[in-house]
């Protein structure tokens, strides 16, 4: 593992009953990298994300982030330490507006008490103003300012995806996990998304780990790629290496029969 390792997943296995959804996986992500995680359906990619973010605790092995082990920590604690995510099937707070969605996340480090909210103390009002400004600013940077007051469930699909990324950014993460950000997008939207990912990476000096099915997107922006099949890591390397790797080709296209 490199010195500036941000995230390291060591020998992680996750069993659901008799099924090993993830077995003996090792993944290391260094500060500032943009890493892809690919694999056929059911390979265990999302399970791996759930292991990192504390939704599941690994049966064996450990996940550590910023040199601290995450085993047994709750999702809300992990996001506070600087790892934020989006979801494969969009999980916005649908009845809330775009702005409110971002505010929920921006509220994470809010230290005001419930009582101060009830009495509307000046301290709370200042604090609320800060959260409001920060959230509006973020929406502006993500080109979502126009829809700030729209109910998020009413937004077009592409904007919902974008808002989910904005919401994840509002927690001020160091590591951003994107779970199939391009799912359901048309080619044009995918190109925009690639630009967006590059942009936010620069602007927020992020490290990004993303799951994606769209090879063009993954090969286009990722610096390093891990390939998962049936819960096992079958390859790791630069995009051009992965493209030529016979195991990866076999996993995606099947093997030739003699």
């Amino acid at each position: 593992m490199s010195q500036n390792g941000l995230l390291s997943i060591s020998n992680v296995t996750m069993r659901f009953g008799g099924l090993a959804a993830v077995s003996d996986v090792n993944i290391h992500v260094a500060q500032g990298e943009l890493v892809g995680l690919i694999g056929p359906n059911g390979a265990g990619k999302t399970t791996l994300f759930n292991l990192m973010t504390g939704v599941y605790t690994p049966t064996e092995g450990s996940v550590s982030f910023l040199s601290e082990t995450l085993n047994g920590r709750k999702p809300y604690e992990i996001v506070r330490s600087g790892m934020s995510r989006t979801f494969q099937n969009i999980r916005l707070f649908r009845e809330l507006t775009a702005l409110e969605n971002v505010k929920v996340a921006a509220n994470m480090r809010n230290e005001t008490s419930l009582l101060s909210a009830v009495f509307r103390t000046p301290h709370l009002l200042r604090n609320d103003d800060e959260i409001d400004n920060f959230s509006r600013n973020l929406l502006e940077q993500m080109d979502l300012a126009d829809v700030a007051d729209t109910r998020s469930g009413d937004l077009p699909y592409g904007l919902q995806r974008r808002l989910e990324i904005a919401r994840a950014l509002a927690t001020k993460p160091k590591l951003l996990l994107l779970d199939e950000p391009a799912a359901g997008m048309n080619p044009q939207e995918k190109v925009q998304l690639m630009d967006l990912i590059r942009q936010i990476r620069e602007r927020f000096s992020l490290t990004i780990l993303l799951i994606e099915h769209d090879m063009k997107l993954v090969m286009g922006i990722c610096e390093r790629i891990y390939v998962l099949e049936y819960g096992k890591l079958i390859a790791e390397g630069k995009p051009e290496e992965i493209r030529k790797n016979p195991k990866v080709i076999a996993a995606y296209l099947g093997e030739e029969v003699e």
Binding site: K74, R91, L92, E95, L96, A117, R120, R167
Partner: peptide
């Protein structure tokens, strides 16, 4: 009306997402 109150609404809307956004 406060930003605090949004936590309660977030739990109603989607517990898993609320959890992932730092809401206990």
């Amino acid at each position: 009306k406060s930003a605090q109150g949004l936590k309660f609404l977030a739990v109603r809307e989607d517990e898993i997402a609320a959890d992932a956004m730092g809401v206990n």
